[in-house]
C-alpha cells in the first residue's frame, strides 16, 4: 500500500510532496532552489556538505536526505539559515586553495557560484589553511588538484554507482578525511576521461580536471555567467 500524495510548506508556500521524496526533491519539482554542493542529480544523496540545511519543524536538517512529510513546515531562505550556509561555504574557501583568478573551473565552479549567491563578500578573520598536497598529473587525460577538493564525494558516488569502478574513495577520519584515488596515483586506476565521475558536471570545483580543455570557454559564456546557481530550478516553475 502506498500512502497518498500530500502537501507541506516551504517558506510559507504549499508544496506538493510524494511519499519517499526528500524535501529537496519536492522543492526542486516545485521550482524552489535549496542551495547544495554535495548533492547532484543522478547520484545518491549523501547529506555531507550541509549547505542544504533547512529548518524542518524547527530542527536543522539536510534537505537532500530528510524525507518530506505531510504538513511539515520548512524554512529555507531566511537570513539565519543563509548565514549558516555562507559560513559553511566560506570555511570551504579557507580550507582549500581556491584562487579563482587562476583556476580553470572559474565561472563553471559551483563553490564559487554558491559564494556569489550567498553574498560572500565580507572580510573574515578565519585563516587560510593553504594545503600543499601534491598534484596528480600521472593520467594522460586527467589531472587532480586535491588542494581544491571540498570532499563532497560526488566523484566517489559517480564512480561507484554510475561507472561501477570505484576509482575514488574517502580516506582518513574526522578533519583528516579526504578524497583519494584507489591506487598509487590516477594512472594506476582504471579511470578514463569518458567516466561520469570525471565529467565536468560531477566535480563541483576545479579538482578533477580534463587535460587540454581548460580555459576553452571565454568569460561571459561559462555556466554561471548566464545566471546564478539554481536559476534553472527557479526558472523552471514559471515555464
Amino acid at each position: 500500500m502506498t500512502s497518498p500524495d500530500f502537501t507541506f510548506v516551504i517558506d510559507g508556500r504549499a508544496i506538493p510532496g510524494k511519499p519517499g521524496q526528500t524535501i529537496m526533491e519536492a522543492a526542486d519539482a516545485a521550482g524552489i532552489y535549496i542551495p547544495r554542493l554535495c548533492d547532484h542529480e543522478g547520484l545518491r544523496h549523501q547529506g555531507g556538505c550541509r549547505v542544504c540545511t533547512v529548518k524542518a519543524a524547527g530542527r536543522s536538517v539536510s534537505a537532500c536526505t530528510q524525507p518530506a512529510a505531510p504538513d511539515l513546515v520548512v524554512e529555507s531562505e531566511t537570513p539565519h539559515i543563509n548565514k549558516l550556509r555562507r559560513d559553511l561555504v566560506e570555511m570551504l574557501f579557507h580550507e582549500g586553495n581556491h584562487l579563482c583568478p587562476i583556476c580553470e573551473a572559474s565561472g563553471n565552479c559551483e563553490l564559487q557560484a554558491m559564494a556569489y549567491r550567498l553574498d560572500m563578500t565580507a572580510p573574515t578573520k578565519m585563516p587560510y589553511l593553504e594545503p600543499c598536497r601534491e598534484l596528480d598529473v600521472s593520467h594522460p587525460d586527467i589531472a587532480l588538484d586535491t588542494n581544491r577538493c571540498i570532499s563532497c564525494g560526488r566523484c566517489i558516488r559517480a564512480s561507484q554507482d554510475v561507472d561501477h569502478k570505484g576509482v575514488f574513495g574517502y580516506v582518513g577520519r574526522g578533519i583528516h578525511r579526504r578524497v583519494a584515488v584507489n591506487g598509487s596515483d590516477l594512472a594506476h586506476t582504471d579511470a578514463a576521461v569518458t567516466d561520469h565521475a570525471i565529467s565536468a558536471e560531477v566535480c563541483p570545483v576545479g579538482c578533477i580536471l580534463r587535460k587540454r580543455v581548460g580555459f576553452a570557454t571565454p568569460i561571459g559564456e561559462r555556466e554561471f555567467d548566464h545566471g546564478p546557481i539554481g536559476h534553472e530550478i527557479e526558472g523552471g516553475s514559471s515555464d
Binding site: 584562487l99 579563482c100 587562476i102 572580510p123
Partner: peptide
C-alpha cells in the same frame, strides 16, 4: 577597503605559498 582578490586572499602572488615538495 581591500580591492581585488590579491588584497582579499593573496591572489596570484599567493600561488608561491603552495610550491610543493
Amino acid at each position: 577597503i581591500a580591492i581585488g582578490q590579491c588584497a582579499i586572499m593573496g591572489g596570484l602572488p599567493a600561488m608561491r605559498n603552495a610550491i610543493m615538495h
